[in-house]
Write a protein that binds this DNA or RNA. Structure first.
Lengths: 250, 250
DNA sequence: ACTGAAGTTTGATATGGATCAAATTTGACG
DNA sequence: CGTCAAATTTGATCCATATCAAACTTCAGT
C-alpha cells in the first residue's frame, strides 16, 4: 500500500511502460505496433490510484480524459435532475471508460470505483491527435466506440424484453466470460458490485435480485454467499438467457 | 418518380454536392471547412433511394458503409437468434446510421426504411482515411459516436425507470424537437413509424401504446388520428416526463 | 370502388415484479 | 473484538402493464 501511494505520487514524471503492462493484449496497446508503442506511452498518465467509493470523474464536469482500468473495477452511471440513477456499465481491467464523453465538453456520466482501483489516464486531446498518426489506433478507437454502442443496445434489449431471471443470468455469464479472458476462473469469482448496483443496472428492485439469486441457488445453478459466486451449471444459465445475445452486457 | 430512379442510377458517376445540400448544417459537412468539402464529396455516394420497407443493410452482413438520411426516415433494430426484435433507433434527415458498426466486420443491426427514403452512403474505409486528414471531421465522428452511446444509455434509463406514459411523452418530445431543428412544425407532425415500432422501441405492448395515446388525447395533451399527431400542451408532456432527460431518446 | 390483410383500438383478465415491512447478516471502524 | 450502519434476505401485498380476445379502421393492390 505504501508502494501504491508512492506510485501515484510520481505517476506523471515517470515514463509509462505500456509494453510491459500485463494488459497490453486487452487495452489500447493491443492496436499499436511494437515500435509505435512509445508514442502511446508518451501521452498516458499511468497508475493513478483510487480508493473504494472515490470518483474518477463526475457527470457534467469538464471532460478531458478517457481512463483504462489497470486493476480493480469501476461502475459508471448517469443521474437525472430528479436524482434518479441508472448504472450504465461495470468495467474491468483493460476496459476503457469515458468513451461516451470522448468528444463532448462534459462527462456524460459519473465513474465510481468499486474497490481500490488503479487506472491509466489518456488525455482526449492528445489521444485524438495520436489517432491521426496511428491508423491502427484510430481504427481501434472506432471499434471500441462501436462496441460500446452495441453493448448499450443489447442492454436496452435486455431491459425491455427479458425477465428478471434472464437478465441476471446474462449478467453472470457476461462477468464469467470477462473474468475468463483475464485468466481468472470463469466459474468462481467475487462480484465487484453490490446487489444494489446489479439491481439498478438491470432495471430491477434489489429484493428481486436477491430472490433470483436464492432461486438459482436452490436450483443448484449457482452457489452464492454475499459477493462470492460459484457457477455450478453454466449450461443451465445459458438456457435461462435463452436467445439473449450473451456478449452484450457489461 | 421517374426522376428519382434516374438519380439513383447515375449516383456514383455524378459528383456529389454536399455544399449545396440543405442538410449541410446537420450532417457530416457540418464539421468540414468550406475548402475541404470537396474531399468529403469525393467519397460520398449520393442519393440512393429506397422504397418503404426496404433494407439499407442487414444485421450480420459485411459492414462497409455508414449512411446519412437525406429525406424520409429509417428505423434500426437488432434481432436475436430467437427472433426477438429490439428497435434501437429512429433516424431523420441529417442523422447518421451505422455508427454501431463503424469498425466491426458485420453490421450490428438492420436498417429498414419507414417510407420512401433517400440516403447518402459513406464507405467506412474511405471515411476513416479521410478523418485522418481532416481533424475536424475526426472530432465530429468521435462526437457523433459519443452521442450515440449517450442516447443509448438514456434509452436504457427510460426503459428501466420510467412508466409507459413517461416513455411515450419522452418520445413525442424527442420527435418534436427533432422536427423543429429541421424547420418543421414541432407541434404538428406525422409519425414516421407504426405503433408497433413505438411499442417495441419503448419496451411496451402495442396495446399499451394505443391506450396511452388515447389517454393523452382525453386529457387534451395531444390530438392523434392514426399517425397524424398534434401536441396541444407541450408543457404538460414535459411535466409527464418529469426528470427524464428530454434529449436522450431517439 | 372492392377486398383482404395489416394496423389500431378497446375491453377483460392475469401476473411478474415493485413496494412495504421487518428480520438477519456483513463489515467498517473505533 | 464489539458496535452500529449498511447491505442482504425473506415475506406479504399491490399494481402497472402484459396478455388474450375481439371489434374496428386503414390502406395497398386489383
Amino acid at each position: 500500500m505504501n508502494q501504491a501511494i508512492r506510485l501515484h505520487q510520481v505517476a506523471s514524471p515517470l515514463k509509462a511502460t505500456c509494453n510491459k503492462c500485463s494488459l497490453s493484449n486487452l487495452c489500447l496497446p493491443l492496436a499499436v505496433e511494437e515500435n509505435d508503442l512509445e508514442r502511446l506511452e508518451d501521452i498516458v498518465l499511468q497508475g493513478k490510484i483510487f480508493n473504494r467509493g472515490e470518483h474518477i470523474f463526475d457527470q457534467s464536469t469538464s471532460s478531458k480524459s478517457c481512463f483504462a482500468v489497470r486493476s480493480g473495477s469501476v461502475k459508471t452511471s448517469i443521474i437525472t435532475e430528479g436524482g434518479d440513477e441508472q448504472v450504465t456499465g461495470f468495467f474491468m481491467p483493460g476496459e476503457l471508460i469515458g468513451l461516451d464523453s470522448m468528444a463532448t465538453d462534459n462527462y456524460a456520466c459519473t465513474a465510481k470505483v468499486l474497490e481500490r482501483t488503479s487506472v491509466c489516464e489518456f488525455p482526449v486531446a492528445k489521444l485524438e491527435q495520436l489517432t491521426r498518426k496511428l491508423p491502427e489506433l484510430q481504427h481501434h478507437m472506432y471499434h471500441l466506440m462501436s462496441q460500446e454502442i452495441q453493448n448499450s443496445h443489447q442492454l436496452a434489449m435486455l431491459l425491455s424484453k427479458n425477465t428478471a431471471e434472464e437478465r441476471i443470468a446474462a449478467l453472470l455469464l457476461s462477468l464469467s466470460s470477462r473474468f475468463q479472458r483475464r485468466r481468472m476462473s470463469p466459474t468462481n469469482f467475487s462480484l465487484p458490485m453490490a446487489r444494489n448496483d446489479i439491481a439498478n443496472f438491470l432495471g430491477l428492485a434489489v429484493e428481486t435480485v436477491s430472490r433470483v439469486f436464492t432461486r438459482f441457488q436452490n436450483q443448484g445453478i449457482i452457489k452464492a454467499r454475499g459477493r462470492e459466486v460459484e457457477l455450478l451449471d453454466v449450461e443451465a444459465l445459458q438456457r435461462v438467457t435463452r436467445d439473449f445475445a450473451r456478449q452484450g452486457c457489461r
